[in-house]
Design a binder for these strands. Structure first.
Length: 600
RNA sequence: UGCCUGGUGGUGUAAUGGUAGCACAGCAGACUCUGACUCUGCUUGUCUAGGUUCGAGUCCUAGCCGGGCAGCCA
């Protein structure tokens, strides 16, 4: 602890949900706060999910609580293990070093156990102690929670609902069910099967489970109120028949519960205290409560709270549309660095810390809006500014000859690795007779206020010396081939004229010592701020979202690893592509450019 | 003509009856061996109309405008 220079405490976020939780804690309503992050494994996680993850895990870490990762896998037709695996990896990446100690996992293969609560029979599934989750030494096998692990208990509760006269088997088909439901402003009509006897319902439901009926033949419905102004209370479906195998539960079931029925009970079984979801579920809250209250359960009931989801500008946050981009080959996969998926952002080189800062900084409210992507870009640059080591690389090379240097002369220059460090380290750069500079750092006819190299002009070569432009070498067609300059070695660091100032400083690499690298320059994927509002979002895809160049990079970059973050000076932040880079064949992704106030 | 829900600068938010603040963006300047970073300054806001109050973004009433809800999806 350095008493003289304490780190600034991160301001604790405050919002209506955190206020509510604080109030519940003050009232001693719950012994421990337990939240959950419940994705359906039907796609990859995106930046919108990151907000939910950071809210749920944030609540857990701020209150010594726990947050369960639970797969809401009640629709086998849309789900795959590929998605399960990617979601686990993405969540772990996002919370690593931040909230991993709050991650709720269960013993592998376990499901809710029969227990006694308040003297009454009950089911509960406790998480394993955190230290066992990622400790290979403990030998404990753990896994996330799965709604599909509760199919047995859920079936049991359905039988109970039938016995209580609060659920019935309905033979209406999908179209008829829709017709009977009415419209938001028109009441529905009772199903002709609504008044079946409890015995008949029990018999039919058990036979549904046994596989006696084909898909769609019958459903189990809650008996609530077909005239309710809330359409979700008009005898909502609880179970449907689907003769398909499940990616996690196998082929044990042909009867699958629907979201509203499975979610509240899964929350209850895990002892969730605060079940946080997005605004579109507001109308479902009454049903969430109805199911739990109808069962007369012996433990405290979870409560649902809703917040506005994150909609960043110039991106898409809809699994369905993201899937379209993948299937239509607009991008190269779910983890394409242009995608707003967590795996895409990770491959792009965006640190998890930046994602967390961004999704936290937008706050938690019930106001739906499009968030300016500049907010995200700012935190990415800010995080990377301290994390990234500086390197020199030339994206669009132009040859420059220092005519007063001998052909085999090598002048070693000290270059700072990261000026943001408290005690910056340096490395050596080789200045040689032939170097490359950025093509747009030279202008034969310079625009106004041009600080860079021009005929007869002077500029500093970063970490080296001042050079003066003497001559342009062109081909027969007048195309510029080389720029010839003289180097003023007396302006090197430690030399008498080191402090001589010129307006411009440019980056460079030695033409003989540099390496070639493929560099992928990414830009926003869409040309409009709200692609989701477009009639066809494929029509507003930015045709220039990816540009590939062969860059000249300084030699030290040849041994980089995918974990390192680089700032190519004056250009932006770059990272080695974890998939495509090979030893001896570097491939870099541009995470983001540097802020450019000159415009050009 | 149903139900739920929300409106604070260009954007995201704070202010819990008491000076409308912060961040981003923008603009201007300082600094600079990165036109980066950093620093300084500036511009811009409580949906409307009434009411309660010494005092209203906040409370009340009435409007206006927006979002969501009628999958055997989640």
């Amino acid at each position: 602890m350095s008493a003289e220079n304490p780190p600034p405490p991160a301001p604790a976020p405050s919002d209506f949900i955190r206020d509510l939780v604080a109030q519940h804690l003050a009232e001693k309503r719950y012994a421990k706060i337990v939240t959950r992050f419940p994705p359906e494994p039907n796609g990859y996680l995106h930046i919108g999910h990151a907000k939910s993850i950071c809210l749920n895990f944030g609540l857990a870490r701020e209150n010594d609580g726990q947050c369960n990762l639970r797969f809401d896998d009640t629709n086998p037709a849309k789900e795959e293990v590929e998605y399960v695996d990617s979601i686990i990896a993405d969540v772990k990446w996002l919370i690593d070093g931040w909230a991993d100690h709050c991650l709720g996992y269960k013993a592998k293969g376990s499901t809710a156990a029969a227990i006694t609560s308040n003297g009454r029979p009950d089911f509960h599934l406790a998480p394993v102690p955190v230290e066992q989750i990622s400790s290979p030494l403990s030998g404990a096998k753990t896994e996330p929670f799965f709604a599909s692990d509760y199919f047995g208990q859920l079936y049991f509760y359905a039988l109970e609902l039938i016995r209580r006269g609060q659920a019935y088997v309905c033979d209406l088909n999908a179209k008829e069910t829709e017709e009977y439901r009415g419209a938001p402003d028109k009441p529905g009509r009772n199903s002709p099967f609504r008044d079946r006897s409890i015995e008949e319902n029990l018999d039919l439901f058990q036979r549904m489970r046994a596989g006696e009926f084909p898909d769609g033949a019958r459903t189990l419905r809650a008996k609530i109120d077909m005239a309710s102004p809330n359409v979700w209370l008009r005898d909502p479906l609880l179970y449907r028949i689907r003769h398909v195998a499940h990616h996690h539960a196998g082929d044990k079931w042909c009867l699958y519960p629907l979201y509203d029925y499975a979610h509240c009970l899964s929350d209850y079984l895990e002892g969730i205290t605060h079940s946080i979801c997005t605004l579109e579920f507001e109308m479902h809250r009454a049903l969430y409560d109805w199911i739990l209250e109808s069962l007369d359960l012996p433990r405290a009931l979870p409560k649902q709270y809703e917040f506005a989801k994150l909609i960043p500008g110039y991106t898409l946050v809809s699994k369905r549309k993201l899937l379209t981009l993948v299937n239509e080959r607009v991008v190269h996969g779910w983890d394409d660095p242009r995608m707003a998926t967590l795996s895409g952002l990770r491959r792009r080189g965006i640190p998890a810390s930046a994602v967390r800062r961004f999704v936290t900084s937008v706050g938690v409210t019930k106001y739906e809006s499009v968030t300016d992507i500049a907010l995200f870009e700012h935190v990415i640059r800010d995080e990377l500014n301290t994390l990234a080591v500086r390197r020199l690389a030339v994206l669009r090379p132009l040859k420059l000859v220092l005519t007063n240097l001998a052909a085999d002369e090598v002048i070693l220059c000290d270059a700072v690795n990261n000026p943001q460090d408290e005690t910056p380290t340096t490395r050596k750069l080789s200045l040689t007779r032939e170097i490359f500079i950025e093509a747009d750092d030279f202008a034969e006819v310079p625009p106004p206020k041009y600080f860079r190299l021009k005929p007869g002009g002077e500029v500093r070569l970063k970490y080296a010396c001042l050079i003066k432009c003497d001559e342009l070498i062109k081909d027969a067609d007048g195309n510029l081939l080389e720029v010839h300059c003289t180097a003023d070695l007396s302006t090197r660091k430690g030399e008498p004229n080191a402090d001589r100032k010129v307006k411009g400083t440019i980056h460079w690499v030695s033409a003989v010592k540099c390496l070639d690298a493929e560099v992928r320059l990414y830009d926003r994927l869409f040309t409009v701020a709200e692609p989701a509002a477009e009639e066809d979002f494929l029509k507003v895809v930015n045709p220039h979202s990816l540009e590939v160049v062969t860059a000249k990079i300084e030699a030290s970059l040849g041994t980089s690893s995918a974990e390192e973050r680089f700032q190519f000076e004056r250009l932006g932040y770059f990272v080695l592509d974890p998939k495509d880079a090979q030893p001896g064949k570097p491939v870099f992704n541009r995470t983001i450019s540097l802020r450019d106030t000159w415009g050009k």
